[in-house]
Design a protein around this nucleic acid. Structure first.
Lengths: 223, 223
DNA sequence: GCATGCATTAATGCATACATTAATTCGAAT
DNA sequence: ATTCGAATTAATGTATGCATTAATGCATGC
C-alpha cells in the first residue's frame, strides 16, 4: 500500500509532491529543507515530514540528515536494478493472470490500453502512447491477486517513470513494443500462461536494454 | 532501506517494536492507540508515530483510522502471497550470486550458515537450526548486488518470520531442507547459476507447501 | 423494546515550540 | 595565507497542545 494515507494534509502533500516529482517538475536532485517544503505547500512541517518519509519509502525522495530532502537523482544503476526485478516479476504476473482464464470483460482494461497504444502509435502521439503503455502494465498487475506484488511492482514502475519519459522521444518508433503488448494480451486471452510469461520477459528485456543504452549514450544519469 | 532511521528515539521505538512483534511478544492482533504505545515506550507520540508508520510500510503493523495500531494478524493468504514472491525472487538472487563466481571467502557466511544448520539438526536444536536457516537466506541476498531486491525480500522474510517460528515445532525434522541448502551452496560454489536457481525454487516450493499446509491444518491463521 | 440522535469521550491530525546537533562562518593564531 | 577553533546559524528531533473527528453510550421518542 504505497499510497495508503488518509489525512487531508498529509495526503495532499504526498500527492502533490509525488506528482511534481513524476512530472519532472521537481527535477531529479532538487533539494530543500523540511521548512522550505512546508512553506511551498502552505502547511506545517508535520504533515510534510510524514509525506517525505512516505516518498522516501517509495524511493522518490532521499532524506539526508542535515542536508534536507532531495528528489532522488536518476541513476543508471538504479534503472538496471529496477528493470532486473521487473523482468522477473512482471512475467510472473502475466502468467498468473493467464492462469485465471479471465473473460473479455475482465480484460477490457488491457485491450483498451492495447488499442490506445496502437492508435497513438498510428498518430505518432508519443505521450498518449506512453500513457496507454503505462495503463497496460498497471492494469495487468491489478488483475492478479497478489497485493504485495502489485504494490511493489507499482513502486518500481513509479521509480522508473521519469527515465521512461525522458527517453521517450529518443527512441525509435515503438513498433515492436506495441506489437509485444498485442501478443501478450492474446496469450492471456488464450489462457496460455507459459507463452504469456515468456513473451513478457522478452518484452521487458528489450525495454531494459533500450532504456539503459539510451541513458548511457546520452549521459543522462548519474553513476 | 527498511530500517534507515537515524534518530535515537524513533530508531529505538522502531527497533523495540519490531523486535517484540517478531518475537511474538506483541502477539498478532495486539492493538493499542498511539498514546498507549508512547506510554509503553516512555516517549512522546511523535517518534512512536513515525516508528509505527515505518512498521506499517514493513507490513508488521496496520494502522486503522480510529482503532489504533495493531500488530498484523497472521493470515494464510498473506503467507501464500509472500511465498509466491519468494519462490520467484530468491532463486533469481541465487542465480545472480552464482554468476558472480564468488570465492570461498565471500561465501563463508553461507557455508557457516549451512554448517550451523547441519550441526543444529544433528543436535535436534530447532531454534539454532531456524536461526542458521535465516542467516543463509539473508546472507545469500546480501551477496547479490541489487539493493532493492535485498530490501524487498528481507521485508518478506520478516513478514513471514512469525509463521515460520510458530510452525517450527510442528514440522518433521527438517532433513530435506538442510540438504537443499548444502546443494544450493555447492551449485553456487560451482558457478552453476541455472542449477542454483532451479534448486532454490524447489526448496521454496516445498517450504511454502509445508508451511501453508501446517497453517491450514492447525487453523493457526485468520482467513 | 428498539431505533434514532445527541452528547460525551478519546484518538488522531496538525501546528508549534523547544532541544539538540551539525554545518558554516568568522576570527585569531601560527 | 592557512589552519584550527569557537560562535553562530539553521535544520532536524522531539514534545506538547489544540482542533478535529469519529466512536460510544445514553437518553429520548416511537
Amino acid at each position: 500500500m504505497p499510497s495508503v494515507i488518509r489525512s487531508p494534509r498529509t495526503e495532499q502533500a504526498y500527492g502533490k509532491l509525488k506528482w511534481e516529482i513524476l512530472q519532472n517538475h521537481l527535477p531529479p536532485g532538487f533539494q530543500a529543507s523540511e521548512p522550505e517544503f512546508a512553506l511551498r505547500l502552505g502547511m506545517s512541517r508535520t504533515p510534510v515530514r510524514e509525506a517525505l518519509l512516505h516518498l522516501e519509502a517509495d524511493g522518490l525522495i532521499e532524506m539526508k540528515p542535515r542536508h534536507g530532502a532531495r528528489v532522488t537523482p536518476l541513476s543508471w544503476n538504479d534503472m538496471r536494478d529496477i528493470y532486473e526485478i521487473l523482468t522477473t516479476l512482471e512475467p510472473e504476473a502475466a502468467a498468473a493472470v493467464a492462469e485465471l482464464k479471465p473473460d473479455q470483460k475482465t480484460l477490457k482494461p488491457l485491450s483498451d490500453a492495447t488499442d490506445g497504444m496502437e492508435k497513438a502509435l498510428a498518430k505518432n502521439d508519443l505521450d498518449n502512447w506512453a500513457a496507454a503503455d503505462d495503463r497496460f502494465h498497471r492494469g495487468l498487475l491489478r488483475l492478479q491477486n497478489n497485493r504485495r506484488l502489485t504494490d511493489f511492482v507499482t513502486r518500481l514502475l513509479d521509480q522508473s517513470h521519469r527515465a521512461r519519459m525522458i527517453t521517450l522521444r529518443m527512441r525509435n518508433r515503438p513498433t515492436q513494443s506495441t506489437e509485444d503488448h498485442r501478443i501478450i494480451l492474446r496469450h492471456i486471452e488464450n489462457g496460455e500462461a507459459g507463452k504469456a510469461r515468456e513473451m513478457y520477459r522478452r518484452h521487458r528485456e528489450r525495454a531494459a536494454s533500450e532504456l539503459l543504452t539510451l541513458l548511457q549514450n546520452y549521459r543522462l544519469t548519474a553513476l
